[in-house]
């Protein structure tokens, strides 16, 4: 399960970012922010080759000693980043994909809310719940 989940706007500011454990929050902010480099790299390289039929899932952005960072980009260039603990070896690529899909669905619901102002921080409880379900449960 994820240790950090972030939603980043098209303009690269965070719409939503949550991590466990909370004391490492800053580190995750740095990690997610840095991962945007790779996201942009992947988007630009994919954009050239595939046209509009592109895969939203970007795969492993980069591994670090402790974490694996996965990326996903919606068609409107909103980025999802999931950080997984490296020691968590049970997670397969497919599971990461399905996590992203779930996240995307929930995000779409948030955007469909007429009272949500696109571009604002996500404060939806439903979205929060979905994210919590994907996060590592720490005691």
């Amino acid at each position: 399960m994820a240790v950090c989940i972030a939603v980043i706007a098209k303009e690269n500011y965070p719409l939503y970012i949550r991590s466990v454990p909370t004391q490492n929050e800053l580190k995750f902010h740095y990690t997610v922010h840095t991962s945007l480099d790779v996201v942009e790299e992947k988007i630009s390289s994919v954009g050239k080759s595939m046209g509009d039929q592109r895969e939203l899932y970007l795969g492993l952005l980069y591994p670090t000693e402790d974490y694996k960072v996965y990326g996903y980009v919606t068609n409107s260039k909103v980025k999802f980043v999931i950080v997984v603990d490296s020691s968590n070896t049970s997670l397969r690529d497919n599971e990461i994909r399905s996590m992203f899909r779930k996240l995307h669905n929930s995000f779409t619901d948030v955007m469909c809310n007429p009272f949500h102002n696109p571009g604002d921080h996500i404060q939806s409880k439903a979205f929060d719940g979905i994210v919590s379900g994907m996060m590592v449960q720490t005691g």
């Binding site: 303009e11 690269n12 500011y13 965070p14 929050e25 800053l26 902010h29 740095y30 922010h33």
Partner: peptide
């Protein structure tokens, strides 16, 4: 860069 992209926690730090 943090300010321009609106990452408040890194900005503060």
């Amino acid at each position: 860069s943090y300010v321009s992209e609106g990452w408040s926690l890194p900005v503060t730090h």
